[in-house]
Design a binder for these strands. Sequence first.
DNA 1: GACGTATTTGCATATTTTGCCAAATACGAA
DNA 2: TTCGTATTTGGCAAAATATGCAAATACGTC
Lengths: 94, 94
Amino acid sequence: MKTDAKYVQMSIVMKAMAHPTRLFILDMLDEREYCVCELQERIHDDMSTVSRHLSVLKNAGLISSRKVNNQVWYKLVCPCVLEFYQCILKKGNE
Amino acid sequence: MKTDAKYVQMSIVMKAMAHPTRLFILDMLDEREYCVCELQERIHDDMSTVSRHLSVLKNAGLISSRKVNNQVWYKLVCPCVLEFYQCILKKGNE
DNA sequence: GACGTATTTGCATATTTTGCCAAATACGAA
DNA sequence: TTCGTATTTGGCAAAATATGCAAATACGTC
């Protein structure tokens, strides 16, 4: 059924990716681990906005974080996210 | 940049998939082509709601439609959508 | 042309998501 | 403990989404 946990869980993950800034973040994190302030510099949104985007991605299980002193470093949990990415881009160019 | 057409386009696709009912529809369409009324029977939402879900998926380029008499049949454009699906599920079970 | 079935669209409403500011929290250094 | 830097959270207004009902549209049949 449409309300199966399977579909609900999936939709949480997709929702997390359904924002240009968050896709940009995932793309950056595919390169290497970044701390919040580095991401903020490149995104030019309010720090609080960047932080919330990161928490959405983390809640969906797409990224993880570790704390080093007063900085928080984020990284991708699963590179498969970006493989999908490639598939969609290909489709878009047909 | 975060507002690159690349990320905006991708976010449209992800947004389209960010709903349990629409994921259910994609899953059904992976099996075979369906017409709107068949989908509606299995979804139990108002016909207008189902129709709107279908138009979101179509605008994102995930499904296509053809008209046969007064029915409209929808099918998946790209099965890669569901491969991604598998990857996410695997990740979720770790 | 009127009728019946299938689908889409307009509108109103309810809910969710965004994004900024200000305040709170965390942590190391002085 | 006070200060400075990094990050998160509360609150709120604006924007986007979701959904049902009714009306409109499309198409074949009578």
